[in-house]
């Protein structure tokens, strides 16, 4: 069993070694459930999302929740201070988290957060980008691909228009950089999934 659960959606990376794994997992679940519910509430407000079949809504949310959370909580990773803030509000230094076993995933998340912040998106742009991220999540479980792709195209077009209005000479570069964030998020999602799979629960 592992002694640490290094995820900022937890209250702390430290786990009581005397607690049964099931209890640790349930507490972790209680910690991140509100954030997942917020992602669902956000998804419901994306124009056109509720018109997709329930199966496809669930598929996109299952595939894209981590990616949306990564974007929404990017500011928890503070590169200037070299810290990560957990849900309890307590900050842990990157050095501490690395000593607890956090490796490539933490480094990649930090790099992603820093580059996203550098794009200086306003609130509307960030919201639209987050919608694009969700609808662009892995489509392998989707039944009605045409509907999802039509919604994806519509949202990407809207994001392009918004960025073109706001970023002057850097508009095209900013938009391209945003689109390149999608495969980066997919890669982070895959790394995160591997971490989850390696975390075994023994009831």
């Amino acid at each position: 069993s592992r002694a640490y659960l290094v995820c900022p959606m937890n209250t702390s990376p430290y786990v009581d070694p005397n607690k049964p794994s099931q209890e640790i997992w349930e507490e972790f679940s209680m910690s991140f459930t509100p954030a997942v519910r917020e992602v669902v509430e956000f998804a419901k407000k994306i124009p056109g999302f509720r018109d997709l079949s329930e199966h496809d809504q669930v598929s996109l949310l299952k595939a894209g929740t981590f990616e949306v959370l990564m974007v929404r909580f990017a500011s928890l990773f503070n590169m200037a201070e070299q810290t990560v803030t957990f849900l309890s509000g307590k900050q842990y230094s990157l050095g501490t988290l690395r000593s607890l076993g956090a490796g490539e995933l933490l480094n990649s998340m930090c790099e992603f957060s820093e580059k996203l912040a550098a794009l200086r998106l306003n609130q509307d742009e960030m919201s639209l980008f987050t919608a694009v991220v969700l609808v662009s999540a892995d489509h392998s479980g989707i039944q009605n691909l045409n509907s999802v792709e039509a919604l994806q195209d519509k949202l990407i077009w809207a994001l392009r228009n918004l960025v073109m209005q706001n970023h002057g000479d850097e508009s095209a570069t900013t938009f391209t950089k945003l689109l390149l964030k999608l495969p980066e998020l997919r890669s982070l999602n895959n790394m995160h999934s591997e971490e989850l799979l390696s975390f075994k629960v023994h009831p």
Binding site: S29, F32, T33, V36, R37, V40, E41, K44, R50, E54, Q57, V58, L61, K62, A63, T65, H192, S193, L196, L197, V201
Partner: peptide, 27 residues
């Protein structure tokens, strides 16, 4: 296939949150 989303109970949380909206709809 071991699905991380199911491991976490993610699908259950997602379904409940989606269904919540249906319950709030007036008849």
């Amino acid at each position: 296939y071991n699905d991380p989303a199911s491991n976490l109970g993610l699908e259950d949380i997602i379904r409940k949150a989606l269904m919540g909206n249906l319950e709030e709809r007036p008849d």
